[in-house]
Amino acid sequence: MNIFRLAGDMTHLASVLVLLLKIHTIKSCAGISLKTQELYALVFATRYLDLFTDYISLYNTLMKLIFLVSSFSIVWYIRHHKIVRRSYDKDQDTFRHYFLVLPCFLLALVINEKFTVKEIMWTFSLYLEAVAILPQLVLLQRTRNIDNLTGQYVFLLGAYRSLYILNWIYRYFTEPHYVHWITWISGLVQTLLYADFFYYYFQSWKNNVKLELPA
């Protein structure tokens, strides 16, 4: 465990807690894409299949449980909570996220480290995580205005992946044989997807204006 990875995991944890806090306290999910949340729940479900078979550390198991519980409860809140669901704007959140799931699964069948069910599901979860933010970014473009909790949520998600890239660089130089192109490339693609959002986020923060994304 290195500082970049720990900071990345804490930032990732903060992003889901910010989101849960927002939904739980103001009982609203305005501006949040349910599709992205469903994709993240699927990412964790397919990545943590080894939760009960391979024990790595208490930290690892604990964090996996937190991510699984939080992502599924966010989906539950938006879909079933009697007050929250009313603030879900399904007419705007129209990204056909099933078009993301299939290509990621097919790609995982073709490009993977081992052709086993667990490995293919794990690789699928990496590819899916790289594109899972797209429905959310599309929704933000559409609704144009971003309330600061949603902006912070997306910012923290991007920061977590950027920190993981530093973690991979660190591990590449400190651990022999630590080479994982699939993890690195999908992580890089994911971070690049945030790049333009980061740009506008910092612009609004620097000029102290409300965050506006160009149409």
């Binding site: 995991d9 080894d50 790595i56 993981y164 651990e175 630590y178 993890t183």
Partner: peptide, 10 residues
Amino acid sequence: EYSNSAKDEL
């Protein structure tokens, strides 16, 4: 073997 080292990440 080494490939598992990517699995110790979240």
